[in-house]
Design a protein around this nucleic acid. Structure first.
Length: 270
DNA sequence: AAAGCATTCAACCGCCGACGC
DNA sequence: AGCGTCGGCGGTTGAATGCTT
């Protein structure tokens, strides 16, 4: 015996909302605040079920919602967070307060997932080759991450704080995985060619200072003695860094060269 | 111009956990 | 403890729109 659906009532309207309904809903919520959705249809006279009202409000009418194209910065965050959290759209949306979980989910399903698939098929042969030439790190068994929101928050702290920045920190997939290992953040690999702004670098370095990250691998001199070439060499020969993946995913031009995708020389990623 | 196909995204559905009785 | 209700979530659908032929 399951719970009866909330929309079983006769004369419950379905489908797209019209402006009049939106106005009624918004003015009601302005007066009473969101919540107690059960009471909304009765008190407003809307022929909608409570769920429909809540959904309309949270996904469309709620103030502060940003609509339209996702910025590369937002794309990067979604890609990162999806890799970390999986399809936890509400959790991902909590890091992008201007976007709704529905928007993020739709964007992932219609844009990013497709690009990811293309990427994976394009790099399949590359993986086959590399897997034969790379001895797995002895600790690779620990690559099953335990998602810790605290760790993720820490990691994204600097990034989220620089919303206007177009450059980003791209940690390799393995590195992010390690973040959630018993020792919080072990390692961040800042891949080749990625620019980091001062805030972001300070954020990473402060994690080092506080013992949250053991080392930072970069190929730029700015990180000084934090460069860990041994770790870098290992990560270079594991799965392609997420930074590369993201660069590829976010490169619109990549879409147009489907079937003729150039796999970068792995040494070039070092 | 129009028919057919592909893509997008708002909205719905069904399940789950929290909570109150 | 058991049941019902509610809010929230992720997966899915289908109408609207865009694109191709």
């Amino acid at each position: 015996m399951g719970r009866p659906p909330c929309c079983d009532k006769v004369a419950i309207k379905k489908g797209p909302w019209n402006p009049e309904e939106d106005i009624i809903l918004v003015s009601y919520i302005q007066q009473h605040g969101p919540g107690n959705w059960r009471a909304v249809p009765t008190n407003t006279g809307l022929l909608r079920c409570s769920k429909s009202c809540r959904l309309r409000w949270t996904n469309y009418l709620r103030p502060g919602i940003k609509r339209g194209n996702f910025t590369p910065h937002e794309e990067g965050m979604i890609i990162h967070l999806q890799a970390l959290l999986g399809n936890k759209w509400a959790a991902i949306a909590s890091y992008l307060p201007q976007r709704t979980d529905n928007d993020i989910k739709n964007y992932w399903n219609t844009h990013l997932k497709k690009r990811l698939k293309r990427f994976q098929s394009a790099t399949y042969d590359h993986h086959q080759f590399m897997s034969k030439n790379y001895v797995q790190h002895e600790n690779s068994s620990s690559s099953v991450y335990a998602s810790s929101e605290e760790n993720i928050s820490r990691l994204l702290e600097g990034w989220m704080g620089s919303s206007s920045s177009t450059s980003s920190i791209y940690a390799s997939n393995n590195s992010l995985v390690k973040c959630c290992m018993p020792r919080e953040i072990d390692h961040i690999n800042v891949a080749n060619g990625i620019k980091i702004d001062d805030d972001q670098l300070q954020c990473i370095l402060s994690h080092c200072d506080h013992g949250l990250i053991d080392s930072v691998t970069t190929n730029c001199d700015c990180s000084g003695n934090l460069v860990d070439h041994q770790e870098k060499a290992k990560s270079d020969y594991s799965d392609p860094p997420l930074s590369f993946l993201e660069k590829w995913l976010m490169d619109e031009s990549a879409i147009q060269v489907e079937g003729d995708i150039e796999i970068p020389d792995p040494k070039g990623l070092a």
